[in-house]
Amino acid sequence: MKLVEAEALRIEKASKTLWVAEFSVAEKLRGLPFEFAMIWVKGVDEIPLSIAWLDKQIVGFIFKIRGEGTRALSSIKRGDRVLMKIPLGKGFAPPSGTKILLVAGGVGIAPAPLLAKYCREVGCTLTIVWGVKSSDELCSPSSIWLDGVDLEVATEDGSQGFRGTALDLAMRIARDGVFDYVVAVGPRAMLRAFCREFPRDKCEKLVALETMVKCGMGMCGSCIVKPLPKLLCIDGPVFSCSEVMRHLELSNS
């Protein structure tokens, strides 16, 4: 983990619901898929965001406005600075040669570009299923570093791609293909449904969780994944369905 000063290069609305924030940093950063950063929007709030892409001295995030911190982040200007603790968490580094299916709901697409880059580098095969309510929530793959990635889209209203949820489409894709890892990231209800319903034969089922994160460094304990003795900021955010099923059932949001 490093504490780095970052300068905004691009803050833009990328779809009806999603924003992109891209920064340049003074030193080369490294990070694994699903690792995250704590971004201090100076004087406002410090928020955890999944690293969307990372290339030498460029780091990007995909986010949704959810509160004061994300709202403030969406309104900063090119050249403005933030301070970030990066990278945090344990990340997810599948071995080379494996086949991965990422099931992303809404802003759950955030960790996808870094996973795609990792897969290209180590030689994993990646299929991404991205589900949203309607096509106006999608953004162009090139704006979020997803060019040339096997990306399948599902919209609940059928306005683009498959009509249905990301999970519906992923189940259909999994019928014809074999995957070593299937990772779901998105709203809690979707993760719960994924862990319950997705067929588990021939694949390891994983979810990327979200919890309250206050320090990001394993000290304050806000991100405890009850009832597990695990901290999201140290052991996560990726966990196997079998270990977090009770956590998902306990929380109803």
Binding site: G218, M219, C220, G221, I224, V225, K226, P227, L228, P229, K230, L231
Partner: peptide
Amino acid sequence: SGILGSEPEHIDV
């Protein structure tokens, strides 16, 4: 004091 220690799961950790 101050490192975790406010939840039973913290005690496990």
